[in-house]
Amino acid sequence: MLIVLFTYIVLVAAYIKGISNIILLFGLKKEAPLLRSKTDVSGAELLLATAADVIFLRRLFRINKILWIGEFLFHITFIIVVLAHLRYIIHPLPRWWSHLVCAGKYAGLLMPFVLLYILVVRISIDYKKYISKGNLLLIVLLILLSGSGVLMRFVMRPDIIAVKGFVIGIFTFQWTHLPDSILFVFHYLLALLLVLYLPSHILTAPFVMAEARKRQP
């Protein structure tokens, strides 16, 4: 029951955090029209270019290709894995979802290695002393999270029915027993920590990239 309570606390805190950020940002005045960056690019072109910047992390590619390989793979695998995890919440699942689950299996397997690669790149290149504590913590958290996920998928499989029942129970307020797997509890708690720790750039970076597009031809 404690873990269920903790889940609700985390979800409510994350919700309030997200909403308060949105209220904070949209409560602020827009940039004065006479100060806005002028661009000859049309709205549609700007949208496409920004989408490409966001999806392909093009700005990072321009300055650090070695790190880009890792970051790009991480973001792609992370999205696939998150989508694949929706199978624990959605019921019944559409038939085509099985393809996504299959992709999630391999993306999940790749993810810890990609994260280790990022960690090695960041601590081994010339500015290794500059890796921030916050970033290091996030990478370590993701490595543990993805590593425990891989172990559960390929080595110590928990009872998948019990897992789905537990997660659906959280969202339908019909709580069931926690699956009998220490590894699952560990993985689940780390996932809750990640929800709390999600960096704010997820919300704001696309808007900033669009502005940068106007400014930097």
Binding site: N21, L24, L25, F26, L28, K29, K30, E31, A32, L35, L60, I63, N64, L67, D126, Y127, Y130, I131, S132, G134, N135, P199, S200, H201, L203, T204, A205, F207, V208, E211
Partner: peptide, 24 residues
């Protein structure tokens, strides 16, 4: 700390990923 800053500027402050590429 946000009074007088525009939405764009506060978004920028919140958008920094702390990757520290800039330090190079």
């Amino acid at each position: 700390f946000i009074e007088g800053l525009s939405r764009k500027e506060v978004m920028e402050i919140k958008a920094c990923t702390q990757c520290r590429e800039c330090l190079r």
